[in-house]
């Protein structure tokens, strides 16, 4: 990507402020083998609903109306295939048909295009369908040139959690182990939905602060049930939790692997010693104690047909 991507599109993200290294080290500035002039050899397009600091870095800024991402992406898919688009309705997106045709031209002409999408796309109205739209668009562009789309995720090792859940359970998130094997259904088993509906009677929280970000009914439920938080510092969630276990900071005083948002693994080597245990140690010790309790799955066979 660093060596090849000559068209870089940021969609619903503000890398200048949220992922500054993304520009400088990764996608935009570096000189690559096939892009010897670095930034000059690349075209950068920014798609967002408002002017952020990233606009300055962009060659083209496309400002779309809030909540129209899915429509714009769907229009682009149609233009890529030379299909009909209702011109009157394009205006409602905040863009003109010419702007969109120009973008498609650039996409098809690119030698290697890449789209990074942020929470401005994946967490607004349409959510997973917005992500699906940009991934589908990228897949379809491969009929013309090389194209990829990649999420820019929040801070912390979100990608790492996703990667490991996938290899141990087959699913990235929203997983239930109630039946002794992994089941997946976002909306049903995703944390926020479980909490909002009050479907759990205990919570163990690790490396996250839902008390700061989740909707109020979810926070109320966390306060109602026994909630255990593992965190190096005091957080919104730790304040409402029944138990807060202080742990060492992963990456600074606890070793591990971090997964970059393109899923490239990086070793985390501790620089400092911490008086606190690592998350792993705490979970291991909890697990040891749970293990000696009577097994609630003993009556089950070792393999089973699934419920769904």
């Amino acid at each position: 990507m660093r060596n090849r991507a000559d068209l870089v599109i940021y969609w619903g993200g503000n890398p200048a402020e949220c992922h500054p290294r993304h520009f400088t080290k990764y996608a935009l500035m570096p000189k690559g083998k096939h892009l010897p002039r670095g930034r000059k050899d690349r075209t950068m397009v920014l798609v967002d609903i408002r002017e952020t600091k990233s606009v300055k870095a962009a060659d083209i800024f496309l400002q779309i109306r809030p909540g129209r991402d899915f429509e714009v992406l769907t229009i682009l898919r149609a233009i890529v295939k030379g299909q009909y688009v209702n011109p009157a309705m394009v205006a409602e997106t905040g863009l003109t048909i010419e702007q969109l045709r120009d973008l498609v031209d650039r996409m098809k002409r690119a030698r290697f295009g890449v789209m990074f999408f942020g929470m401005g796309l994946s967490m607004t109205r349409g959510k997973h369908m917005n992500s699906s739209a940009i991934l589908t668009l990228a897949a379809e562009l491969n009929a013309y040139t090389k194209f990829v789309a990649m999420p820019m995720r929040g801070h912390g090792n979100v990608t790492g959690a996703d990667v490991i859940m996938r290899w141990t359970t087959g699913y990235p998130f929203g997983i239930s182990f109630d039946r002794g094997y992994p089941r997946f259904n976002p909306g049903e088993f995703s944390t926020v939905d479980l909490l909002v509906r009050g479907d759990t009677d205990a919570a163990l929280i690790l490396g996250a602060d839902p008390g700061a970000t989740m909707p109020q009914p979810a926070i109320d439920h966390l306060a109602r049930i026994p909630t255990i938080v593992l965190d190096p510092k005091v957080t919104h969630t730790s304040r409402l939790a029944r138990v807060h276990i202080t742990t060492a900071v992963t990456g600074i005083s606890a070793p591990g692997t971090g997964y970059r948002m393109d899923e490239v693994p990086l070793p985390l080597r501790p620089a400092l010693k911490s008086p606190y245990p690592t998350d792993e140690e705490v979970v291991r010790r909890i697990h040891e104690l749970v293990r000696v309790k009577p097994d609630w799955l003993v009556h089950q066979p070792r393999t089973t047909q699934q419920v769904f």
Binding site: R77, V85, T93
Partner: peptide, 10 residues
């Protein structure tokens, strides 16, 4: 009842 159309319907 009337409903909002996507621009990709003719």
């Amino acid at each position: 009842a009337p409903l909002p159309l996507l621009p990709t319907f003719a």
